[in-house]
Write a protein that binds this DNA or RNA. Structure first.
Lengths: 199, 199
DNA sequence: GTCTATAGCAGGATAGAC
DNA sequence: GTCTATCCTGCTATAGAC
């Protein structure tokens, strides 16, 4: 098999295992087994575990970019696009209840390990942050776009964390509906009469 | 030294290390070193790592109970008490930016490891949940007290997660102020004119 | 109750044959 | 590019002296 294809498979499997059982808990043997490789051959493709982590983070960044592009194209209005972001919590509820948010849990794990790739993982959050902020700017919230973006990111992280702890699907749906109502209050079509700060 | 005192020290050190570097990443050698014990002697007190984990979760539950009791006694009104809960995010900001929320990160880690103590850790969340719900009942929100409690827990988890990723103290303060405003709108003294559901 | 010594195993990583 | 065989390290855990 071509090296690039084997490499791609390794990163794909590692991405899944890092998400499902965590970076540290995933061993070379686990990845090799799932790819169908011997442990020895593994090192032809990746010299260290850190290298695989870098490749996985890069892959996730590409996935996030693709996702944001899809929403950008599909959403008629900025608020439709933001709604797409909010709704992934419901769409991915099964995985989230089992393993949390892929970005949030990786960041948390790498932070504790004081891993060098810690900031690279945080940059995945930043992708959502800047994209959301751009949508809020388009909605006319220039001065507070970044704060609103962080607020929404914060909520989605909180929902993911509690959904994992309590495994409560109704809770996810309730909070997503709440985020949509919050968003509705900030659309130019139905402007809030009180304040533009997150509440 | 008395066995019970040594045991207490082990649990105290393990509690700190599990928080700072994570359960799996913490080795017996780490704990033994910080306590000032030989690795061998360790097993006189705890037979397995899981036993230490159980003791740490028990210790954290006691800490949470003590904290809730303090707030219960100190807070003049239920909303004062809830405000105490919200403000730990600011008070513990340095530790939270470095290692996240002790409860949330433990739950996340044990979930990924599919550890048997997973649900015991989630029960730490439940302590806050029922306590907060009781305060909301006292504020006259009987039917939605649990949903409001979960909403506040969700927010605090989200803030902790993003604070760890971005290490942004201003973000924490802004969101805490926001939670206080949200709470203000739900106090009988200044009732919300729109709805009692979290928004 | 504390120590040293050590078993036993799994992980990351390497060498070299094919 | 893939394999087997192997090394080293660090971990959990045990045995037994003091």
């Amino acid at each position: 098999m071509r090296a690039s294809e084997t490499r791609r498979q390794i990163v794909e499997v590692a991405d899944r295992l890092f998400y499902e059982i965590g970076y540290e808990a995933t061993s070379f043997a686990d990845i090799a087994r799932d790819v169908g490789l011997s442990r020895g051959n593994f090192y032809y493709h990746f010299k260290t575990k850190d290298e695989i982590l870098d490749a996985v983070i890069e892959r996730r960044a590409a996935t996030v970019h693709a996702l944001l592009d899809t929403w950008e194209d599909a959403g008629e209005s900025p608020s439709d696009r933001i709604r797409s972001f909010v709704r992934i919590l419901v769409e991915n509820r099964t995985k989230i209840m089992a393993h949390g948010c892929p970005v949030g849990t990786l960041c948390a794990e790498l932070s504790k390990l004081q891993h060098a790739a810690r900031d690279d993982a945080a940059r995945l959050f930043a992708l959502f942050r800047t994209w959301l902020a751009r949508q809020f700017v388009a909605l006319g919230h220039e001065g507070e776009a970044d704060a609103l973006a962080l607020h929404l990111l914060m909520r989605s992280q909180g929902v993911a964390a509690l959904a994992t702890a309590f495994r409560d699907e109704d809770f996810i749906r309730r909070e997503v509906a709440d985020m949509e109502a919050w968003l509705e209050a900030r659309c130019p079509a139905a402007p809030s009469t009180v304040s533009h700060r997150p509440d």
